[in-house]
């Protein structure tokens, strides 16, 4: 049996909101250590890797490994019925064909219960764990979201170049071109505003703006985003959870 209680429904709401426009359904793999998901979008360009560690939960138990096939649109509708501050418990028997979702209002004496029908999802897992990294950039997630939105107005591609002491984001299209350069900065009073860049090899990569638009839907999950880049390889965009992460692997664009 699986039972996981979130201190606040808002966390699961944000996670599902960040995923549902990229993949319509996916398997939630539940073990005694927590819940993980790997899912690829229809075009096979963007991969989502989610880990919600056991410590994220107020209470967690999973006696036997369970795979829950979940339609994210339906899941999102049901979780949307709870208030952000409610306790949210997900519950499934070992051979369940539904997932129980329970909201508890912390002030009123009110409990709401829903059942979501589970799906049979046949999906291949990809071996993404052994990736090398040539450059790592950490910056405020809101800044990254703004850069992606601003550059998308110019072009369907965003070029990222990284050198020893700066990262440059640039786009060029029919109406013109633009660029944003960021440099490392340590802000002791506001550590969430700090920017770090570490580099083994210079980077010049281009990514599809529409996929970046999907990625930045995770912005509310974390004040920071870490971008790991390797020449001629997918980029990794990581939003840390209180205990775990939501990562996106995005295949690059190439010169034809």
């Amino acid at each position: 049996m699986l039972e996981g209680k979130f201190e606040e429904a808002s966390l699961l709401k944000k996670i599902v909101e960040a995923m549902k426009d990229c993949v319509s359904s996916c398997n939630f793999n539940c073990t005694e250590n927590g819940i993980s998901v790997q899912a690829v979008d229809n075009s096979r360009v963007l991969l989502i890797s989610l880990l919600i560690e056991k410590d994220t939960f107020e209470e967690y138990r999973c006696d036997r490994n369970i795979t829950l096939g979940i339609g994210l649109g339906s899941f999102s509708k049901i979780i949307g019925n709870g208030a952000n501050s409610d306790y949210l418990t997900i519950q499934a028997e070992d051979d369940a064909d539904t997932l129980g979702i329970i909201f508890e209002d912390k002030v009123k004496d009110k409990i709401s219960e829903y059942n979501l029908k589970l799906l049979d999802i046949d999906a291949d897992l990809l071996e993404v764990d052994a990736m090398e990294t040539d450059a790592t950039i950490t910056l405020p997630s809101a800044d990254f979201a703004k850069i992606c939105k601003d550059m998308k107005t110019l072009s369907e591609s965003l070029q990222i170049t990284v050198t020893k002491d700066s990262a440059k984001f640039q786009s060029a299209g029919e109406i013109g071109s633009g660029s944003v350069v960021i440099k490392p900065k340590t802000d002791i009073d506001h550590p969430e505003e700090s920017i770090t860049i570490s580099l083994d090899k210079p980077i010049d990569l281009s990514f599809g703006s529409k996929y970046l638009s999907d990625i930045i839907k995770a912005t509310s999950l974390s004040q920071k985003v870490t971008i790991k880049l390797t020449e001629d390889s997918p980029g990794v965009f990581e939003y840390k959870l209180p205990s775990g992460y939501l990562r996106f692997y995005l295949a690059p664009k190439f010169d034809e």
Binding site: R44, L126, E127, S157, K253, D255
Partner: peptide, 14 residues
């Protein structure tokens, strides 16, 4: 003009 690659050209199946 740039072409979009897919993840399958980088990652094998588990």
């Amino acid at each position: 003009k740039k072409a979009q690659s897919t993840l399958m050209s980088f990652f094998g199946k588990k």
